[in-house]
């Protein structure tokens, strides 16, 4: 069996588009609204979730046959919690500013529906390598939406991207004002809605 057989490719790429965890399954919305006020935390959050989903999928898949069915949620939680703690500590050590901005939301990755969903729906019944790819795919699918929303929120809400000013000064001199509502979670819900709108407009079979 090749490493990137058709089924494996499917596991990796379908969450990017037709089975996207955020815009199609509508999971992980809470953190998508909370951390996307700026682009940088959105990227870091997307990466963290990708890493955690991939490795928790891998680990659970490796031990899936020895997990007693009745306590499987507990076992999954322990694995996820361990990974979340590691990621959180790494962020604190190497990217302290971002980890302060993300505050509790890194810890709350443990409650992210995408993770438990993938563990239950995929890792428990698939081999390690496809599970790992599925985790990567879902993490990136989540990250893409976060980056899109974070891009627009930072651009329109603060006039910057990754902290650098993008909107030129002459705009401000001519009366342009940053949109304060973009920095509020309410607006990111509407932005996620817009992304879903565009996505479904291109994929008619999802409507």
């Amino acid at each position: 069996m090749s490493l990137l057989s058709k089924a494996n490719k499917e596991a990796l790429t379908s969450p990017l588009n037709l089975n996207n965890p955020v815009v199609v399954q509508v999971l992980g919305i809470c953190s998508a609204l909370a951390v996307t006020a700026q682009l940088e935390p959105a990227i870091v959050m997307g990466l963290s979730v990708t890493i955690i989903t991939a490795f928790s999928n891998l680990i659970i898949s490796l031990i899936r046959k020895s997990i007693p069915n009745r306590i499987r949620i507990i076992v999954q939680l322990v694995v996820v919690a361990a990974l979340v703690t590691i990621v959180s500590q790494v962020l604190k050590a190497f990217a302290y500013d971002v980890s302060v901005q993300l505050s509790v939301y890194v810890g709350l990755i443990i409650t992210n529906c995408i993770l438990m969903g993938r563990l239950e729906a995929f890792a428990m019944m698939n081999k390690p390598w496809p599970s790992f790819l599925d985790g990567i795919g879902n993490g990136i699918g989540y990250a893409i939406i976060l980056v899109i929303v974070g891009f627009f929120r930072e651009l329109l809400g603060a006039g910057t991207l990754l902290g650098f000013q993008v909107v030129p000064d002459w705009c401000y001199e001519h009366g342009y004002v940053n949109n304060g509502m973009m920095t509020m979670p309410a607006m990111s819900l509407i932005l996620v809605g817009c992304v879903i709108w565009v996505h479904r407009a291109y994929n008619k079979d999802l409507q």
């Binding site: 004002v177 949109n179 304060g180 509502m181 973009m182 509020m184 309410a186």
Partner: peptide, 10 residues
């Protein structure tokens, strides 16, 4: 409401 929350200073 959009104006109020988006551009409070105006």
């Amino acid at each position: 409401a959009f104006l109020f929350f988006s551009y409070p200073s105006s």
